[in-house]
């Protein structure tokens, strides 16, 4: 019974190793020249420690949301492209309709100026 769980144990061990070995190796082998900028935590463009009630540029989020939408579209396209030969014309037309609806959305955001930074 227990032997069936052996692959899982192996998986856990490799997972732990994968996390720790590079860190330890980096500490032992790599050169270490710290300065204040390198030591400060990195938080995608924001100061890491300050009041949470600050003003931020909402356009950043607009671009991020639009990116996610079109990124998901690509995620749909990959499996569709692989099985395209099997699903035939129906699958092709269905995806074209899906893309067509997305294009309408794209025209909308373009025309409304969601893509202009200034």
């Amino acid at each position: 019974m227990l032997i069936e769980y052996f692959p899982i144990l192996l998986f856990i061990l490799i997972g732990i190793g994968f996390g720790f070995v590079p860190m330890i190796a980096g500490k032992l082998v790599g050169p270490s020249k710290p300065d204040p900028e390198k030591l400060s935590p990195y938080e995608c463009g924001f100061e890491a420690f300050e009041d949470t009630r600050m003003k931020f540029d909402v356009r950043y989020y607009l671009v991020a949301i639009l990116f996610i939408l079109f990124d998901l579209e690509i995620a749909f396209l990959f499996p569709w492209a692989i099985v395209l030969e099997e699903i035939g014309m129906f699958g092709f037309v269905a995806m074209m309709i899906f893309l067509g609806i997305l294009v309408v959305g794209f025209i909308y955001e373009w025309k409304k100026g969601a893509l202009d930074w200034e």
Binding site: V104, I107, K112
Partner: peptide, 8 residues
């Protein structure tokens, strides 16, 4: 979709 494009 037509209403959306017509509005634009």
């Amino acid at each position: 979709c037509v209403v959306l494009l017509a509005d634009l």
